[in-house]
Amino acid sequence: MSAATARAARVIAGFLCLGAAAVVPLADAAGPAVSEEAVQAIAAQLRCVVCQNLSVADSPSEMASQMRDLIRERLAAGDRPEQVMAYFVQRYGDWVLLAPPARGLNLVLWLAPFGAVVGGLAIALTLAYRWRRRPAPAPAVPPMGPRDRERLAAELERLGD
């Protein structure tokens, strides 16, 4: 789905470029032409606010499509991509970014996986080293108690009969 969307976006972007080239004198008055790729690039980094785990680029919802229109409009008005992102962050908070910014408490999110891998490797290596150094002791048989001894004698006697 995502690859198909990207392909479709590229085709559309190609047509838009052709179209833009043909109407440059007219389009000049309306500000710089916005490529569909530029819109998608921003939309892919924004969380679709009415979906579960979908980006604004991938969601077919009405709200996402309105957001894409808004991105296109702001880019056409001369906003830089960072400014468009900032517009959404001001309203929705960092939550709207699919990749949380690596600062403050968010650093835990970014660093914890690496910490877990390093910690896990350290534990695994330590254990492996320990097991190799210490040969497994022969399984100890608990000494027979007087009750067991009695029972053994009784069983043997029964078998002997």
Binding site: V49, V50, M63, M67, L70, F88, R91, Y92, G93
Partner: peptide, 13 residues
């Protein structure tokens, strides 16, 4: 109509 006001207010539902 274009969802401008709701996006301006950061509405998600």
């Amino acid at each position: 109509p274009a969802g401008r006001t709701s996006i301006d207010y950061g509405v998600y539902g």
